[in-house]
Amino acid sequence: MSSADVSRVTREANESPVVEWGARVGYAVLGVLHLVIAYLAVKIAWGIGSSGSQSADQSGALSTVAGSTTGPFLLWVAVVGFALLGLWNLTEGAISHGEATDRLKLAAKGVMYLFFAWTAFKVVALGTEGSSEKDTEDATQALMGSPAGQVLVGALGLVVLGIAGYHVYKGWKKKFLGDLTEHPGDWAVQAGRAGYVAKGVALVVVGVFFLVAAVQHDADKAQGLDGALKSLKDMTGGSVVLTVVALGIAAYGVYSFARARYARL
């Protein structure tokens, strides 16, 4: 197959109504998962139920959804939605004529959504819940064991901090409106603003954990979203702080529903 044929197939996949529909479903599923993560975070903040054994992250949200009456159906929808959202981002990155950094971001998002699809598939088809925190520690351990491992983990921490800062900037300046085809309404704008800032705050903590892991040469110090949120509870007034961040994450979930309708695809 020639490069022209590959380009044509890629563009056809990107512009397929099925892929576009699936991508919008993916954003809606992302909204549901953020609402569940916020719910779990509030439970952790106030010690409600068996909150200590629950993960306030993607794996915890998927496990919670799996335990509901319609859980299997919703998880299959998540598998399809995330897979097609990942495919759209990858094909958009491949055919886009934008700057290299924008194309790289699209590719990275595509890989991330495909990972989400695989995680959901493992839960619904294989009955494997998994642990995002363990995956984070294992990946950090593998990175730490490579040549210049401490430097690489430290660099990863700086990258996460950069992403965190961009989230805060994107939310505060309402730059996320550029991802939409039209104004979604003031409720969605305010939800998106609060959501991006809250996610940025959580990512700041994640980035700091990676830097600590690098300085102390200890992969166990690296934490994902769950560890970051739980660490907020240990602060002075931590229950209130974690609740505020959880509300922000819930707001991002609400914005994701608007994005499912108005996303620029």
Rank of each mutant, 00 (worst) to 15 (best):
A213D: 00
G130I: 08
G178C: 12
L33T: 03
G185K: 12
D220C: 02
A164V: 08
T69H: 04
R193F: 11
V111Y: 02
W172A: 15
F257E: 11
S7Q: 14
L126S: 14
E92A: 10
V204D: 03
R261M: 07
A194D: 05
G26I: 01
A194C: 07
A251W: 08
K170R: 15
Y252E: 03
V9N: 12
W76E: 03
G207E: 01
A213I: 04
E15C: 03
G200C: 13
L152P: 01
G171T: 02
G195C: 01
T119M: 10
G171P: 00
T243G: 05
D179W: 11
G145L: 13
G185L: 07
G178W: 02
M112C: 00
A83Q: 05
E99P: 07
A250R: 06
G178Y: 13
D234Y: 08
V212A: 12
D186I: 01
G81Q: 00
R261P: 04
A260G: 15
T128I: 15
H183M: 04
N89G: 06
L85E: 05
G162T: 03
A23V: 11
I163D: 08
G237R: 02
V254P: 05
F121R: 14
A214P: 00
R264G: 00
G224W: 09
S3W: 13
T69D: 03
Q141E: 13
R259S: 01
A246Y: 05
T128H: 14
N14P: 04
V215W: 14
S68C: 10
V123C: 12
V36M: 02
A23Y: 07
A188V: 07
V123D: 11
A188S: 13
K109H: 06
I48R: 15
V212C: 00
W21P: 10
L90F: 04
P184L: 05
Y196H: 14
L232E: 10
W76I: 10
V6E: 03
Y166S: 13
A125L: 13
L225A: 05
A251F: 06
Q223V: 10
I37R: 10
L35T: 02
S50H: 05
F116M: 13
G171K: 03
V32T: 11
A66Q: 14
T10M: 09
K109L: 12
L143P: 06
K221N: 05
A198G: 08
M112G: 01
L84R: 11
K43R: 15
E137P: 08
M144E: 05
E20W: 11
P17I: 07
G195A: 00
V6S: 09
A38V: 10
Q223C: 04
Y252G: 00
V80C: 04
G238R: 10
Y166C: 03
R11W: 12
L40N: 09
G49L: 11
V111R: 08
V197H: 09
G192F: 11
G67F: 05
A100L: 15
A100C: 11
D218M: 11
Y252N: 01
V111M: 10
V205S: 09
T64F: 12
Q54S: 05
D138N: 13
F82T: 08
D220P: 07
I249C: 10
V124G: 07
L211T: 06
Q141L: 14
L33Y: 08
G195R: 06
K174S: 06
G31A: 01
G192Y: 07
